[in-house]
C-alpha cells in the first residue's frame, strides 16, 4: 500500500478508528519515550515490566464491571508500584525479588478475574497483544490529558529525579525526599504504561518504554538530547509501525515493537561515537571526540 493510500484511509470516515489508533499510538510512544529515559538510566526496566503485568488485573476488573479500562489499570498499577516501593525499603530483600513476587501474582489474579467474563478468550488476546479497533473517544481524551499532565510532572520533577538517580546519598543530604520521589517515578511509569496498553498490549508495552530510550542513549551522551530523541524515535516508530501493520495486515503492537527494535539495532551498529561498526572503521589510536 502506498503512503497516499494510507493517508486516504486515515481520512476515510468509514475507518474512523484508524486515525484514533494513530493518535493514541503516537501519544503513548512519546510519553513512554520520555519516561523511559529514567527507566533505562536507573536500570528499572524490570519494574516497568512488573507494572505492565500488574495493570492487568485492573483492566480485567474494569472489563468485567464494564468500567473505564484506563482508570482500572491505573489503580492496579499504582497500587503495585507503591507496594513494591514500600517492600523494597526492607533491605533484606532485593528489589527484583519483591517485584518478581508481586507481578506474577497480580498477573495471575488478572487471568482468574477475566476468566469470569463471558467470551473471555477474545478479550484476553486483545489485552495481551493490543488492538487498534474499539478505542472509545473518552479513552482518547483521557490519554491526551493524562499525557500532558505527565509531561508537565516530568518537567517539574526533572532536576530532582536526576539528583536522586545520580547519587541517592547526596540527594538525601541536600534534603530531597527520596522515598516520595521514587514513588512519583513509579507512578509516572505506571500512568505511561496504562495509556499505552490498549494499542500495544500488555506484553509488548515494555518495549515502548525501554527501546526508544535505549536507542537514544546509544546516540548521545547528553541527557537533554536523549529525552528529545527518545520520544521522537518512539513517535516515528509508531507511525511507521501502524502504516506497515495496516498495509500488510499485521498485528499492530508487534509491528511497532519490531520497527523500534530495528531502530535500536541500527543505533547500536552506527551510533556516531560508540557504534559497533563506527568504532571498527575508525583508525586505531584516534579517540572519539568528546561530545557534550
Amino acid at each position: 500500500m502506498s503512503i497516499a493510500e494510507f493517508l486516504a484511509d486515515l481520512t476515510n470516515p468509514d475507518l474512523a478508528f484508524l486515525p484514533k489508533a494513530l493518535l493514541i499510538a503516537v501519544m503513548s510512544s512519546v510519553v513512554c519515550g520520555v519516561v523511559g529515559c529514567y527507566v533505562v538510566l536507573r536500570g528499572m526496566a524490570f519494574i516497568g515490566d512488573a507494572v505492565a503485568h500488574a495493570v492487568f488485573p485492573g483492566l480485567a476488573v474494569a472489563f468485567v464491571l464494564q468500567g473505564s479500562l484506563v482508570v482500572g489499570g491505573a489503580v492496579a498499577g499504582v497500587l503495585t508500584a507503591v507496594l513494591v516501593a514500600v517492600f523494597a525499603q526492607n533491605r533484606r530483600l532485593k528489589e527484583d525479588s519483591v517485584i518478581g513476587v508481586f507481578y506474577v501474582a497480580s498477573f495471575a489474579l488478572g487471568i482468574v478475574i477475566i476468566s469470569q467474563a463471558p467470551g473471555y478468550a477474545g478479550s484476553l488476546q486483545q489485552f495481551l497483544f493490543g488492538s487498534i479497533t474499539g478505542i472509545p473517544d473518552e479513552d482518547l481524551y483521557t490519554a491526551a490529558i493524562t499525557g500532558v499532565l505527565l509531561l508537565g510532572a516530568v518537567l517539574l520533577l526533572h532536576q530532582q529525579f536526576v539528583t536522586v538517580s545520580l547519587d541517592r546519598e547526596l540527594a538525601r543530604a541536600v534534603g530531597l525526599r527520596v522515598f516520595w520521589l521514587d514513588i512519583a517515578l513509579y507512578v509516572l511509569v505506571t500512568v505511561a504504561i496504562v495509556i499505552s496498553v490498549q494499542t500495544i498490549g500488555n506484553i509488548l508495552v515494555l518495549a515502548l518504554l525501554v527501546t526508544p530510550a535505549a536507542a537514544a542513549r546509544l546516540l548521545t551522551d547528553r541527557l537533554g538530547a536523549m529525552m528529545l530523541l527518545a520520544p521522537a524515535i518512539g513517535g516515528s516508530g509508531a507511525v511507521v509501525g501502524l502504516y506497515l501493520s495496516w498495509s500488510y495486515d499485521l498485528p499492530v503492537g508487534g509491528t511497532i515493537v519490531l520497527v523500534l527494535a530495528t531502530v535500536f539495532l541500527l543505533a547500536w551498529l552506527f551510533a556516531p561515537c560508540h557504534g559497533l561498526v563506527t568504532k571498527h572503521w575508525r583508525r586505531p589510536g584516534i579517540e572519539a571526540p568528546a561530545t557534550g
Binding site: 532536576q159 545520580l166 547519587d167 541517592r168 547526596l170 547528553r222
Partner: peptide, 23 residues
C-alpha cells in the same frame, strides 16, 4: 562509588544537582 558515573550528564549539570535542595 555511590555516584552513577555512567549517567549521561555533563560536569556542570552534575555539579548543579548539589543545589537541588535549594531549587
Amino acid at each position: 562509588h555511590e555516584f552513577a558515573w555512567d549517567f549521561p550528564i555533563s560536569v556542570e549539570n552534575a555539579v548543579m544537582t548539589g543545589r537541588s535542595g535549594l531549587l
